[in-house]
């Protein structure tokens, strides 16, 4: 949204999220109030294209418009949820909500005021080697009552993370309010794994099953094809390795000398970023002109 002007970076990052950041919207999908109705089913004179429209399209007379001119999304759904999404190797986005029912239950079980006076903590775990019960808590992030989302700066790429939303009551008791899904952050460099496995996908696998009457759309075909392909691949991998395929090819050799793991990798990322910047610029300027148009450059 464009509502972040004037906010500090930290305010922006930790702002109240639900509902309030959704700007006011004009009526209808299209900005105009004008309606020049066209029939969805009419044929186009002189066209060689079949004029039939989707069977679901409504023929004349047009239906009345029971569609409200504008829809609003709720600020929250009153459900207990904590979700994580990966932004990049070092940042994970979390959004959450705690239902009124759960809040009431906490007040009932732990004394009135337990919720409002308690501290809310986002506790992040590294679960690469197991679930949260095995994982080590990496950090506790204090959350304001009005916050509903957070960008978490995680320490390592290529790791699995999950989080708990924890309430610490005034009496010092910890209550897990919600547990998130697990996410896996991407690698930020070349893999350290250099064992190679090779595979041939043979068309006859497919043809064999198609000949047997299992078309590509048949779930049975898919199931058996996947099973067969997997079996075949595993065989191929071990066979090839056994046949002496070196795990370090020309690129592998370069990499193992560190040629690609340091400066070159950074250069590569820089090049990619430059290209992406250029793409973003072009797209921006492309769309920016529409904005200019609105303001009426002359």
């Amino acid at each position: 949204m464009q509502d972040s002007a004037g906010m500090t970076g930290r305010e922006k990052k930790n702002r109240i999220e639900m509902g309030e950041d959704i700007p006011a919207i004009q009526n209808t999908d299209s900005p105009s109030g004008l309606y020049t109705l066209e029939s969805p089913g009419r044929s186009i004179p002189g066209s060689s294209i079949p004029a039939e429209r989707p069977a679901f399209a409504v023929q004349e007379p047009l239906p009345p418009a029971p569609d409200p001119p504008e829809y609003f999304l709720p600020r929250r759904y009153d459900e207990t949820i904590l979700s994580l999404m990966v932004r990049d190797p070092y940042w994970v986005y979390a959004y959450w909500d705690i239902s009124t029912t759960d809040v009431c239950r906490i007040d009932r079980d732990h004394g009135y005021g337990a919720w409002s006076a308690g501290s809310k903590i986002l506790r992040v775990y590294d679960v690469t080697d197991g679930g949260a019960h095995l994982g080590r808590a990496l950090m506790n992030i204090g959350i304001g009552d009005d916050s509903a989302s957070w960008y978490i700066n995680v320490p390592e790429a290529n790791r699995a993370y999950c989080a708990d939303m924890v309430l610490i009551t005034p009496a010092g008791r910890e209550i897990v309010l919600a547990r998130s899904n697990s996410v896996f952050t991407p690698r930020d460099g070349v893999s350290d794994v250099i064992d190679e496995e090779w595979m041939v996908l043979r068309e006859y696998d497919r043809l064999y099953w198609m000949s047997a009457g299992f078309g590509p759309s048949s779930p049975e075909f898919q199931r058996r094809f996947v099973a067969r392909a997997m079996k075949h691949r595993l065989l191929m991998g071990s066979q090839l390795l056994a046949a002496g395929f070196s795990p370090a090819g020309p690129w592998g050799a370069e990499h193992s000398k560190g040629g690609m793991s340091g400066g070159s990798r950074i250069r590569l990322r820089a090049e990619i970023s430059k290209i992406d910047n250029a793409r973003a610029e072009m797209s921006n300027t492309n769309r920016a002109r529409h904005q200019q148009n609105r303001t009426g450059r002359s």
Binding site: M1, Q2, S4, K12, K13, R15, E17, M18, D21, I22, Y77, S83, M85, V86, R87, D88, P89, W91, Y93, Y95, D97, S149, P186, R269, I272, S273, D276, N277, R279, A280
Partner: peptide, 22 residues
Amino acid sequence: SSWGYKGYCEVWLNETNDWIYR
């Protein structure tokens, strides 16, 4: 990965648009 700016998801997940995912 993606071919967006910085190579991951930031173009589609940032302070301008993260509200949609909920």
